[in-house]
């Protein structure tokens, strides 16, 4: 991670079906932690186990089981919404129908399906990106500011999808700066500063046990 590690000494266990909020200042290391969990960033030192896979040994096994919603759209601008969803769903082993169903869940109007992504607003692109992510049915959702750019209805849709995914066994890690909304959604709230978890709060009704704990990662000082 270069001379100044984005993460240093993060020690984190996340259970199945948990919704975990990561917050902190810009540059605190939140997005890097998500990318690390997605297997996109190599470990400089320490160890990390995601969905039972050691990221130090093989990151490819993890990648196909996670869904990442980043700051970038992950969409081809010269393809239509339908063509993008068709490509990404089939690339991940899902079907065209899965892609269309995901668009429907995100509330992307059918009149937009044949519009080039280049012609969409930021909020519409965000919805399409989200649809491209969920059509793969990931087991671990990694969402970097999922509410950004969305209108009120879109934000409610994201919240309900996250809650539903967790209810069906998916684990959700998300970054947000809208703490009121995010806190209401999350089971746990971790505050990161300079690559270290400095504070943690848990929702009162959340109960986790060690037996169902799936270690996400433990990254000591680089």
């Amino acid at each position: 991670m270069g001379r100044f590690p984005a993460l240093a000494g993060v020690d984190l266990d996340v259970s199945d079906s948990q919704i975990v909020l990561l917050s902190g200042h810009n540059g605190a290391g939140k997005s890097t932690l998500l990318r690390l969990c997605a297997g996109l960033v190599p470990l400089a030192s320490g160890s990390a186990v995601v969905l039972g896979n050691d990221l130090g040994k093989s990151r490819s096994a993890v990648r196909r089981r996670v869904g990442l919603l980043g700051h970038e759209t992950f969409l081809y601008e010269d393809l239509t919404v339908r063509e993008n969803l068709d490509f990404w769903s089939r690339a991940a082993g899902a079907t065209k129908e899965d892609g269309l169903s995901a668009l429907d869940r995100l509330g992307v109007a059918s009149r937009l399906h044949d519009v080039n992504v280049r012609g969409l607003s930021a909020g519409q692109r965000r919805r399409v990106s989200f649809a491209a992510m969920i059509c793969r049915r990931p087991e671990l959702w990694l969402l970097d500011e999922p509410h950004a750019g969305l209108d009120a209805a879109g934000r409610d849709t994201v919240d309900s999808l996250v809650t539903e995914a967790a209810a069906h066994g998916a684990t959700v890690l998300f970054v947000s700066h809208e703490l009121d909304r995010a806190d209401a959604l999350a089971d746990r709230h971790l505050v990161i500063d300079s690559g270290i978890i400095v504070d943690e709060t848990r929702r009162a009704d959340t109960s986790t046990t060690d037996s169902d704990s799936v270690p996400l990662g433990a990254i000591p000082d680089a």
Partner: peptide, 17 residues
Amino acid sequence: GIEAEDGIIDALRLCGM
């Protein structure tokens, strides 16, 4: 160039192909 835009390379790495 089209693969370098909008994080597409990351998406290709994640898609499992």
